[in-house]
Amino acid sequence: MRALASILLCCCGLLAGCERAKQDMYDQPRYTTFAGSTLFPDGASARMPPAGTQPRARGAFAGSSGGRVGVAAVNTDIAAEQAQSNPYPVDLRLLERGRGRYMIYCLPCHSPVGDGDGMIVRRGFPAPPSFHQDRLRAAPDRHIYEVITQGYGVMLPYADRVEPADRWAIVAFIRALQLSQQAPADSLPPALKAQLDAQPGAAP
């Protein structure tokens, strides 16, 4: 009986410790703004951002004095967010940027060619629509931009990971993917047309 009482007493002590630890998680120690600290040599708790950090702000106050550093940069982001079609010249530099962002954020589901058969889909994730279907080939640039920004269906929003300029670069690359699967052979430059005609099984 005495042993049982000791075990119960020990269990009560452990439970009390768990409750205390849980409360500590709710009330974690933290510094108030501009409070001092003995943890760092300069005595300040607030730390400077690492070298090369680019401050950014999003939402309704992105263009305010507390937003991203540089009025020109802020205005560029705002203009990109409000554009109804791609505001950047579609050149090799933009397409390479879009391809890089696409490979990081889009390829796992949409696949390298944009047909919706990515590696994540092959492992059971719902397949996105192919970029090569008539509906998306005819969709305005802004539609694709908005889907990247806000998400659609099971696709999550990417606004917090992909900045406006990069969203438009992805849109440009998706348009290039669509063209790659639909371009008439006669529209190719002569050198590429000759290579295509030389492929086994090419139509005479």
Score class of each variant (00 low, 15 high):
residue 70 G to A: 05
residue 41 P to M: 00
residue 39 L to P: 01
residue 166 D to F: 04
residue 60 A to Q: 11
residue 192 L to A: 12
residue 4 L to P: 06
residue 153 G to A: 06
residue 134 D to N: 08
residue 125 F to S: 15
residue 40 F to L: 13
residue 152 Y to V: 02
residue 12 C to H: 12
residue 106 C to T: 05
residue 65 S to I: 12
residue 51 A to G: 06
residue 37 S to M: 12
residue 197 D to W: 02
residue 100 G to H: 08
residue 119 M to H: 14
residue 34 F to L: 13
residue 12 C to K: 08
residue 95 L to Y: 00
residue 101 R to N: 09
residue 64 S to M: 11
residue 50 P to V: 02
residue 120 I to W: 14
residue 25 M to C: 05
residue 16 A to Q: 11
residue 173 F to V: 11
residue 200 P to L: 00
residue 85 S to G: 12
residue 48 M to L: 11
residue 180 S to R: 08
residue 20 R to L: 11
residue 87 P to K: 01
residue 184 P to R: 11
residue 107 L to V: 11
residue 63 G to P: 00
residue 8 L to P: 07
residue 126 P to Y: 02
residue 39 L to K: 08
residue 94 L to N: 00
residue 113 V to L: 10
residue 159 A to V: 05
residue 41 P to F: 00
residue 11 C to G: 15
residue 87 P to Y: 02
residue 174 I to C: 04
residue 133 Q to N: 11
residue 14 L to S: 06
residue 32 T to E: 10
residue 104 I to G: 13
residue 28 Q to V: 01
residue 138 A to V: 08
residue 44 A to R: 15
residue 26 Y to P: 00
residue 37 S to A: 14
residue 6 S to I: 09
residue 21 A to Y: 00
residue 22 K to M: 09
residue 126 P to M: 07
residue 50 P to Y: 03
residue 44 A to M: 10
residue 159 A to W: 05
residue 36 G to L: 14
residue 84 Q to G: 14
residue 73 A to C: 06
residue 134 D to Q: 07
residue 7 I to N: 12
residue 141 D to R: 08
residue 159 A to Q: 14
residue 123 R to K: 13
residue 26 Y to V: 02
residue 34 F to W: 07
residue 62 A to W: 05
residue 172 A to T: 01
residue 175 R to L: 03
residue 156 L to G: 13
residue 131 F to Y: 15
residue 89 P to S: 06
residue 170 I to R: 01
residue 29 P to Q: 04
residue 135 R to L: 15
residue 58 R to N: 12
residue 97 R to V: 08
residue 29 P to F: 03
residue 89 P to M: 03
residue 37 S to T: 10
residue 137 R to Y: 01
residue 164 P to N: 01
residue 141 D to G: 04
residue 89 P to Y: 00
residue 6 S to K: 13
residue 101 R to P: 03
